[in-house]
Structure formats: structure tokens, C-alpha cells
Amino acid sequence: MVDEKVLARVYLHAVLPCLAIITGNNNAAQKIAERFNGTISFMVGLSGPRATLTIKDSVLTFVPWKIPRPDITLFFLNDKMVNRLFSGHAPGFVLPIKGFTKINGFLTLIKLLKLMEDILQKDGGNNELKARAMLHIMARAMAVVAVHEKESRTHAQHLKGSAEIAIRGLDTVHVDFTGETASFHPGNAQDPEFSLTFSSGDVFLGVANDTIDVMAAVCLEDMTLKGNLHMGQTIDILLDKIGRYLR
């Protein structure tokens, strides 16, 4: 059962930020991003999640809140509208309540989202970029569901410390859990409670796409688990939940 409120947060706070990785590592994305310099804020209802993308000289940055006086504000009446936009349905439902004339920024965003979808979903492309983007999406989504999704929250409240996830030679991220909160961070954790390392981007994508036997992969050392494996079991439950949301 997918909770639309949680899904909207996953899209805004886990999927959207990964546009930064896409544009930083893909020529086509950079060309699209060149067409707009400015800030785009996202608002869902009066009390829903917020986010802001800044595009400057084709470099994207993300913050999970609305900045003062953005160039464009996209207002979504409810969570479902966010989810329709990100799942490729009916972008017209969104209301640019500010900067209506800056249609160029909005079109840039839509094109970038479409390109990201192509990179993430199509086979045969740049698997390293796909794996890095997916790594960030999954780790960020883990922080979201751990706090906002009811069943995941029950599990995550027992998690304390950092869970580090790495793809060897590609990228490392970590999520800090306090029992009540969970936050995403790029890079290594200082003293990880649990670490999970994939031997390659392909192995990571195989696990993310549910096409690899994870337990066998660990035994064959295509994946390495270290530290508190009890925490690892809970992380596995959260990743499974994320899979259901992003399927």
C-alpha cells in the first residue's frame, strides 16, 4: 500500500535532488540546464513538503525547503499532483503561482525530469551514472520513509547510528539515524554502525532492480556487510519498502 503523502516526499526529497547528479555527469542534461539560470521552489498544499532547486551555469543544487523569493514557485494542491508530475502524468496540473512568465524554467525542469527518467529506467545507457543516481535516491528515500512512513518508522525507531552504503570506486553515501530522525549525507560516515558495500554499479543495480539474489551476492563477496547486521536487516526492510514506492 503506497501512501501518497509519503510518495510525494520521496519524489521531492529523494528523486528531485538527484537531478544534480544527472546534470553534473551527463552532457545532454547539462545542455538542457544551460537554458535556465534561477531558482524553482516546490510547495505541496499549505503544510506539505517544500523543496528548492537552484540552477546556475548548468550546475544544480537542492535544498529540502522553500527559499525566500524563488524565481518560480510550483504549487501543488495536493500530494497526488506531485506524484503525477514525477510519474510522467499530467504536468499541467501544477500551478506556477509565481514567475508564471518564466515558462522556460518550468520547461527546463520537465525536460530534466524526463531525461532522468530515461537514464534511470532504460537499459544499455551509462550504468555508472544510473547506479550513482539510484544510490542517492535510495539513501535519501530511506531517510524519508524512516521518518514519514508508518510501518518503516516502527522499524527505524530502533536504529541508532550511521548506515553507510557504497559502490566500490563510484560513490559513498550514508544515512544517520537517531531513533526519531533520519538524515541523508553524501560521503563516508565517520564511525558507521553498519556498512554495505557493492563491488560494482552493476551489482548495485541488480539489487535495486530485484534481479540479484542478495544473500548469495553477500556470500560471493559481490556485496560486503560489516558492523551491526541487526541494523542491516532493518535497512533491508526499509529498502524493500522504498522499492515498493518507486516501483
Binding site: D213, M215, A216, V218, C219, L220, E221, T224, L225, L229
Partner: peptide
């Protein structure tokens, strides 16, 4: 062990499952 496990993983989900899985020891 590794070679046999490769064979096992082709025909047994997880290769070795349940409480005998090596996952919770230190594979390697």
C-alpha cells in the same frame, strides 16, 4: 567453498538459506 557456493547459488535460492547462511558470519 566458494566454487561450490557458485553452483549452489544457481539452484538454491540464497545458495545456503536459513540459519546456516554464511551471511551472518564473516563471508570471506
Amino acid at each position: 567453498s566458494k566454487e561450490l557456493f557458485r553452483r549452489a547459488a544457481r539452484v538454491i535460492p540464497q545458495g545456503i538459506y536459513g540459519h546456516l547462511t554464511p551471511v551472518f558470519t564473516v563471508p570471506g
